Simulated scan of single mutants.
Amino acid sequence: MQTPLSYLDLFSLCVQTVPVDVSMQTSLSHLDLSHNMIPSMDPDVRQTLDNLAAKHTVTLRLRGNPLTCTCQTLDMVRWLATTVVRLDGDNHNLAYDDDYDDNGRDYPCVLEDGGMGSTLSVMAQWEAHWRRCVGLAFLTVSAVALLVQVLGLLLTYLLWSKWTYVRHAWRVLRHLRLPRRHDFQNDAVFVYADDDLELAMKLKQAVGNARPGLRLSLLIDEIMPGSSLPEGIARSVERSWKVVLLVTQTFLQDDWSGFSVLQAQGSISDTLPDRVLVLMMGPLQPWAARVPSHLSMRTLLRMIPESCVYHVPGTVTSRHSIWVTLGDRIASDPI
C-alpha cells in the first residue's frame, strides 16, 4: 500500500503546471513549486490546497516563478490574497487589509501591459482591474449587440421597401421548381397578323407533323366568341409554354402587332428566358429593313437569345428540317 506524501518537493524542475495530482495526497502539508516556470496556479490545485488547509497546516512555496497578473489570472491573484495556505512571498503589508494576517502573500508578477507589478498591489486596486477586464468583454458584447440591432433594422427596412425583389431572391435561393411544359394549357401558341392566318395554319400543321403530340394553338383558337382581340392575345400568351411570333412584312404593318410583341415581352422572365420564339418568314429583303424601325420588335430581339430567332426562307414545306428543330425546342423542358 502506497504511503501518502506529506512533503512534495518540485523545486527547479522547469515545469509550467503541477505535474502531480495533489488531490490524491490527503496528508500533504508542504508543496515546494519554487523556481519553476509556472505563470498561474490551476483552479483544481488551489481548491485542493484549500481543502487540505482546512484540516491541517499547508505550506506552499512559489518564489522564483514568473507569475502573471492579467485578466485571465485575476482569480489566482485573489486566491493568493485570501487563502489560508501558508505562502512564502514577501511579507510587507500594502494596506490591502490591515486586519488580515499577511503571511507572505506578495509575489512579483507580469502585468497586462508587460510591466512588472506585484500580486498585492493588483489586489489593492482590485476593482479597477476587474472593471477593466470585465468591461472590455461587456464592451465587445455591447458592440456586437448594437451591430445586430442596426443590421436588424436595415434588414427590416429592406424587406419592407423591396419586398418584391426579396421574395424573388428568396425563390431563387430556395431553388424552387422551374415551370414545366405540362404546367401550361398549350405547348405553343402562334401569334400572327390577321392576313397571315393561312400561313399560320400551314406552319402549325408542319410542326405538328414533325413533332406529334404537341399541343399547338392559334390565336383564332384562343379568342372566345364576343371577347376582344387584346384579351384573346393576352390569354393565349399566358396559357402557353412557348410563344411563336410569325414575323412577316404583313405582321410589321398590322395594327395589333405592337400589342402582340409587348405581350410576348411581358411573358419573358428569368425562369423562362427563352419563352418567345421568333420566326422570320419568307425572303428577308426588302421588308427585313423595317424590323429595326419597329420599336417593340427591336426591343424584343434584344431580350431573347439569338438561338430563339429562326429564319424560314421560301415557302412552307412539311419536309423542311426546321420544323423538327422548332418542335424539339417547343417540347424541351429547362434543366
Rank of each mutant, 00 (worst) to 15 (best):
S6T: 10
L10V: 13
Q16K: 05
T17Y: 05
V22P: 09
S23L: 15
L28F: 05
S40H: 03
P43Y: 01
V45S: 07
Q47R: 15
H56T: 09
Q72G: 04
G89L: 02
H92C: 12
L94H: 03
D99F: 12
N103S: 08
N103W: 00
N103V: 15
C109W: 01
L111V: 09
E112I: 13
G115Y: 02
G135S: 04
L136Q: 06
F138M: 04
L139M: 11
V141S: 01
S142W: 12
A143F: 00
A145G: 05
Q149Y: 02
Y157R: 11
W163D: 07
Y165W: 05
V166W: 08
A169L: 15
P179G: 01
D187W: 13
F190N: 08
D196E: 03
L197V: 11
K202S: 05
N209E: 14
L216V: 07
E222L: 04
S227Q: 15
I233T: 06
S236T: 01
W241D: 07
K242R: 15
K242E: 09
K242Y: 01
V247I: 15
D254F: 13
G258T: 14
G258N: 15
F259T: 02
V261P: 05
S267C: 10
P273Q: 05
L279E: 06
A289L: 14
R290G: 01
R290D: 01
H294R: 04
L295F: 12
S296P: 09
R302N: 06
E306H: 13
T315Y: 02
I322C: 00
